[in-house]
Nucleic acid binder design. Sequence first.
DNA 1: TAGGCCATCTGGTCCT
DNA 2: AGGACCAGATGGCCTA
Length: 213
Amino acid sequence: MYPKVICVPDALRRFSPTLRNRVNEADDTSGDSRGQLTRKPATVTRGDVSSVKNPKHRCEQSGQRGRRRMKANDRERHRMHNLNSALDALRSILPALPEDAKLTKIETLRFARNYIWALTETLRMADQHAHTQDYLASDVSSPASVLSAEWDSASPSECGYGTNADFGHRNSLTAVNEMSCRIFPGNESSAIPVTFCFKSLCADNDLTSMWHF
DNA sequence: TAGGCCATCTGGTCCT
DNA sequence: AGGACCAGATGGCCTA
């Protein structure tokens, strides 16, 4: 039984569309919302330029060495594309983001880590609460399990916590953000109101220090 | 214009 | 020998 998670963190919601769409949409035909994959292949433009300007890129030459290097470049490109595909897959299962927003690679990894941690804590708290309810009610008929959990983002002010949030900047992910979460151990009438404080949602911080109830 | 993010190239290292 | 992986270098694109 998994918690139902509806979560659009404010820090992410506040990303400006232009901030996350750095590439002309007219060029975006691949479905990549951010557009890196729609850039012109460096083998066509950048590769040529760099091979001329950069002494390190001298191996674009004929001969067996050049062919080997080209094959290696091709493999490396493919490898990185696979890596990016995996990152996209990870992004797709993270809490919903605005259509025009896309986490960077590092943000994706950090957010995923924090998200997994949050879910784990949610289950742990719900289980704990369920057991307490059972104990108090001595009602063996109600299962000590989590029916669902609903997440909502909330502005820091709404939650009543002090914050230095600066959501207007690109580094908004380092700002304080909070999400409220209601957990339903057995029935909705006994929902547990919980506020999760995602300080530095995507930062690599000590998660335990940002958990508030 | 500076800084962030990215894709790509490249050579080195390790493994099969 | 060849492939996978890695990190450094480079240049393009974008935003503040």
